[in-house]
Design a protein around this nucleic acid. Sequence first.
DNA 1: GCGACAG
DNA 2: ATCTTGTCGC
Length: 266
Amino acid sequence: MKKISHAPVESSSSSSTQHKIWGEEQDELKQKLIAEDDFPWRLATTATSDQEEVLKYVGGVDLSYSKEDPSMACGILVVLDLHTLQVVYEDFSIVTLSVPYVPGFLAFREAPVLLELLEKMRTTANPFYPQLLMVDGNGILHPRGFGLACHLGTLANLPTIGIGKNLHHVDGLTLSSVRQLLKAKEDYSENFITLTGSSGRIWGVAVRTTGGSLKPIFISIGHRISLDTAIRIVNMTCKYRVPEPIRQADIRSREYLRKHQTRMSK
DNA sequence: GCGACAG
DNA sequence: ATCTTGTCGC
């Protein structure tokens, strides 16, 4: 029988309705966003002249997904010593996700697992609790200016930096224009460009962190940090294209997921 | 209509 | 995100 819909029937399960609710939640949280340096520590670039708190523990978060079961994932939190770039803490969680991936709403899928890993550290007063978090995903470089890094930062009340490995096309930004600008800057031995949208807003920067890779990464602020500071910290943590906290989170979450699956198949 | 759309 | 080994080069 043909459905005659004069009135919305399944409004609670309509995806457009869900997206609207999610968007409102993002706008709500956005009011708490702090887009400038707001932390108790400093960078240890100058001489260690006092007993001031120095940035030492930098966290990285990521999720890896199973190919055979797309709802199964491994969320991970790693913490690195900024000076040695060695992992000093790691924890992971194998989860079954019910929320789908929708561009622009990544946080609603990934944030809960990651927040739980952070909360576990905080409530046990773990000495390695990160002073800053690097997130595999964007910060304000996002359709509503509130990506996963902002979402996590505001909810965990932590300074966060968003690291995108692909460009989210926003405000007229395109990969070809980014490439063009990066190429032009090569002559001046610059390796990054500011991402200024058609509106004039600055969304972040595109950086070629390694000479070897032509593919840039996209840095945007998450919470309680300025873009300048974010760039400096990313530069301090890059041994390869992707900053080490993100890279380690990526490698290790994939590894734990693989081990988990082989263990289950026996 | 067409292309774009973080992970 | 995921499918995927070796291989070319610094």
